[in-house]
Simulated assay, not measured.
Amino acid sequence: MSKNLLGNNFITQIGILVHDIEKTSQVYADFFGVDKPEAIITDTVDKAQTEYRGESTVARAKLAFFNMGSLQLELIEPDEHPSTWREYLDEHGEGVHHIAFEIEGMKEKVQLLEGAQMPLVQKGEYEGGRYAYIDSVKDLKVMLELLEND
């Protein structure tokens, strides 16, 4: 495997799956002594163009973000529709789902990782960019999220 497939070693985010985002957000806010962030809901499939395992999905999630200096904690409460979030929460329970990296060249990075036996699981769009979840659990023991901002 070539050195540094992502182009950087800077982890920008840790994503944590939860059953109750309001309750867990408050616990984190109290723990860190900060205001509880407003939970947002991911865009609908027509805007987000969400694909899970190669198929379009209407899956959505509530998200809450804690900006902790150079690292962001993302809490994720998925809905019931098929997604990497729902699958992972159902199989493993609450806890860390992914570590995220900001990258450039999404298509190229996904191809490189797939060539390293780390397949694309889910992808979508958000205002100002796109994301891709890569199944790196076998090798890295955690899912990777690639974030490409415009």
Rank of each mutant, 00 (worst) to 15 (best):
S70E: 11
K138E: 09
L71H: 04
Y28L: 07
A59W: 03
N9G: 09
M143G: 00
D46M: 09
I99F: 03
I14W: 00
T44E: 15
L146D: 00
S56F: 11
I76H: 01
I16L: 10
P37A: 08
K36I: 09
R53P: 01
S56D: 00
Y133H: 08
I41Y: 06
A39P: 12
K23H: 11
V96R: 00
N8G: 08
L89G: 04
G15R: 03
N67Q: 14
G69F: 06
H97N: 10
H92K: 15
S56K: 15
G15Q: 01
P119H: 08
E104A: 13
E55W: 02
Y126N: 02
K47G: 05
D79K: 06
H98K: 08
K123A: 07
Q117Y: 12
P37H: 04
D46V: 12
F65G: 01
T50K: 14
Y88V: 14
K62S: 11
V34W: 03
K141T: 12
P82R: 03
I40H: 02
G124S: 05
G93I: 10
H81W: 02
K123V: 03
S2G: 13
E91T: 11
Y133D: 06
S25C: 07
E87L: 12
E74L: 03
A100C: 09
N67K: 15
L113W: 07
F32A: 03
D20T: 04
I14Y: 00
Q49K: 15
G95K: 05
T42M: 07
Q122D: 06
V137P: 02
G54Y: 06
I14R: 01
E102I: 10
T57V: 07
D43L: 15
L146R: 07
V96E: 01
L112A: 14
Y133A: 05
E55V: 10
V142T: 14
E74P: 07
G95H: 05
S25Y: 06
Q111H: 10
E108T: 13
V34E: 05
Y126P: 02
R130Q: 15
R130W: 11
K47S: 14
Y126R: 14
G128K: 11
E102N: 12
E74Q: 08
A64M: 02
E87D: 15
Y28Q: 03
M68D: 00
E148L: 10
E114W: 08
K36V: 10
G95P: 07
L71T: 11
Q111C: 01
M1L: 10
G124W: 08
L89S: 06
E104D: 14
D90N: 12
E145F: 02
L120F: 09
R60T: 13
E102Y: 07
F101L: 06
A100P: 03
E102M: 09
I134P: 01
T42Y: 06
I134L: 05
N67C: 05
Q72P: 00
Q111T: 13
L140F: 13
N149V: 13
